[in-house]
């Protein structure tokens, strides 16, 4: 099979799969017994309505604001901590086990208490996003900086690079690959954190849209909200991945040698 033929087949299969899925959903949802899952012919108009009336877009803007503030704070502190852990034996010896332990914790458990410290609104949601994202950034940064290949460091030194030059030419580019993939993962985890906070801490933004539909048993609006939220997470991650590939393009090249 040639490359393009394979691509064409893949595309056809995907389209067929999507059509089959929608058809199945339509058939299943049209049955009045399944009132909880209305068919696409009702969900998509509801989605369209939500978008055109501005409700969904406004909620999305709020969710994105939470996400981006949380991400920026996590990245800044994650980079600082990650570099500290990589560079100072003291920080590594003492913080590494703490980071591992914290990473094992299902952070959602903290939702019942954090309101008191951060408030239940924007700050609380941002805080939850940070609990979801920060450690990933710390871990990928510190492994990235620690795992610079020895040979390449030696090569840098052999060609007269020292100190800051060595960082610029060898250590940072090498660590960048890890850090960039950490940030992509961070985006995926961040949107999960944001949505979880909006649903569980106090209803807000997209979470409020969904909860409101649930409370009023508007199942078409409920499914529209869920579908939109799932798509949003997917699109954000895909965008982060695309950016990552751009940033560290050399990483995706096949190794011929």
């Amino acid at each position: 099979m040639t490359m393009s033929a394979q691509r064409r087949n893949a595309l056809l299969l995907r389209i067929a799969s999507l059509v089959a899925f929608l058809a199945l959903w339509q058939w299943y949802g049209s049955d009045p017994i399944h009132f909880a899952t209305p068919p696409p012919t009702e969900v998509f108009p509801a989605l369209w309505e939500g978008i055109t009336e501005g409700e969904i877009l406004g909620a999305t803007a709020g969710t994105l604001a939470t996400l981006s503030v949380g991400l920026v704070i996590s990245i800044v502190f994650g980079l600082i901590l990650g570099f500290a852990v990589a560079l100072f034996p003291w920080a590594r010896n003492t913080l590494d086990p703490l980071i591992d332990a914290a990473y094992a914790m299902p952070v959602t458990m903290l939702i019942p208490v954090i309101g008191v410290y951060t408030g239940l609104d924007f700050r609380g949601r941002v805080f939850i996003v940070i609990t979801y994202v920060l450690l990933v950034i710390v871990i990928t940064t510190s492994t990235g900086v620690r795992d610079v290949p020895r040979d390449l460091l030696e090569t840098g030194r052999a060609f007269g690079l020292k100190g800051r030059e060595l960082w610029r030419a060898v250590i940072l580019p090498s660590a960048m690959a890890h850090i960039a993939s950490g940030i992509s993962t961070g985006v995926a985890r961040g949107i999960r954190g944001a949505i979880t906070a909006e649903l569980l801490l106090i209803a807000a933004d997209l979470g409020a849209y969904i909860l409101d539909a649930q409370a009023r048993l508007l199942t078409d609006q409920l499914l529209a909200g869920i579908l939109w939220t799932l798509l949003l997470g997917y699109v954000l991650y895909a965008a982060a991945l695309w950016l990552e590939r751009r940033l560290v393009r050399w990483r995706t090249l096949g190794d011929l040698a």
Partner: peptide, 30 residues
């Protein structure tokens, strides 16, 4: 180490994130 001595390593040790020309420029940066 000194730029008075040039080293060709056993394994090529090229920086994978640099293009060929940028790799050749490595020592010139210092």
């Amino acid at each position: 180490p000194s730029l008075d001595r040039g080293m060709v390593f056993q394994h090529h040790n090229l920086m994978p994130w640099r293009t060929v020309i940028r790799n050749v420029e490595l020592g010139l940066e210092a």
